[in-house]
Design a protein around this nucleic acid. Structure first.
Lengths: 229, 229
DNA sequence: TAGTGGTCTAGACCACGGA
DNA sequence: CCGTGGTCTAGACCACTAA
């Protein structure tokens, strides 16, 4: 075996980062590259395909391959289950159910979850603790039309997130990150001052077009989400 | 051509989401799957490899392939250049340089950027506006030992981010998201009240082990980072 | 040690889309 | 139209690792 796709990929990447291949410049086609590397076209193809996936190069049939002007910088962000997240910090995890009630969906939620006028939802408020200290406040709404069995389940021992993950798959999700000021209730739950800046995640989850759940996760003061390239 | 890798992938995914393949269960090996789908082993391999990349299944030589207990939920997050980000909102972008000065690195920064006692840095403060309103406050430090040409450049017309992207490649980066309370200066820059909760990104960038730059990006009130699965 | 996934090859056909 | 990337095939050898 002459050369691996990893070596081809690394070599092309080197040429790009060292300036031998300038941004925007065209690259040889796969057949020529395969010949110059002395390998099969499929090998070159895999290297180039991964570089394209990574946002480094741009490929178009007939037009060929060029180095991207501005490489698309992207990160993979893991969405952990809160219990695992806390365990990875080396802390003891504790879960507490604060509220669990089926009720008609409020107006603002109907809009967000695309619910009908009379649809009911399960409203859950939970707290997640790390080594006894508040870590995350969870405010969740589950669409009972899509998931009637949620009404029969008591969420005393297992958090709704874990229950949902093991019960229903989902096909699409939207996540957003932002900052909020702690209101009085949240401040008490998270043991901080009213008005403190808190990191919040919102997530909506769908199964084949139907909204399953909407959740707001508010973290203790100073929480960070960290990623590496 | 009988079946494509996309069809194989979709079919396996369907089996998983519909419960035919339970979490944790073992799957047939590639040779058997190829036979049952009536395609080449390479086709099955590509489908399975992508499912593994997506965190849906887990593969180990000799041990075989199983459906993950808890699928790794991950998102790809694009890191835009602020000018492009604003343009995509359909707003007019304006850039302003507030401060640009070479100086010795303060202690806290030396620790973050792994700098020596006498290393100097370029300190830049910039503002980015969308349709005339403050959008992002940029507080950046560039390692002059790694990038002496930064001292010769005036950053009057082009933001340091764009300049860096087009000037130096980087090999590694760490990004973190969190919430901060606006201090008096930031509040004035971003036209909000002191104490408001603001979304902030911090990014450190390395080139082959050497720190290039550290930047804090603070966004206007209400900014959100949104991702889809 | 033996079974499984990881990868390469040489060749083929095809879909897309610029010229 | 026709060059380019996208994909499939059949076969092969290899690396890893559980048994």
């Amino acid at each position: 075996m002459s050369i691996t796709y990893r070596e081809v990929k690394a070599d092309i990447l080197r040429q790009i980062t060292q300036g031998e291949l300038a941004p925007g410049s065209a690259m040889p086609n796969e057949v020529d590259l395969a010949a110059s590397y002395g390998c099969a076209r499929a090998t070159v193809n895999r290297a180039m395909r991964e570089l394209a996936d990574d946002g480094i190069i741009e490929r178009r049939r007939k037009a060929g391959t060029r180095v991207r002007q501005n490489p698309i910088r992207q990160v993979r962000l893991n969405i952990p289950i809160v219990g695992q997240e806390i365990a990875e910090l080396g802390a003891a995890y504790r879960y507490a159910l604060v509220k669990c009630k089926a009720e008609p969906a409020p107006d603002w939620l109907r809009a967000r979850m695309a619910l009908g006028r009379d649809d009911r939802v399960m409203h859950l408020i939970c707290m997640h603790y790390a080594d006894g200290a508040p870590y995350q406040h969870e405010d969740r709404w589950i669409n009972l039309k899509a998931l009637p069995e949620a009404e029969l389940h008591d969420f005393l021992d297992v958090g709704p997130n874990e229950w949902l993950v093991s019960t229903v798959p989902f096909t699409d999700a939207q996540i957003s990150f932002h900052a909020v000021q702690a209101d009085a209730a949240t401040a008490e739950y998270l043991d901080c001052s009213e008005g403190d800046a808190l990191f919040q995640t919102e997530r909506t989850t769908w199964l084949e077009g139907q909204t399953i759940t909407f959740v707001q996760l508010t973290y203790r003061r100073g929480h960070r989400v960290t990623m590496q390239y």
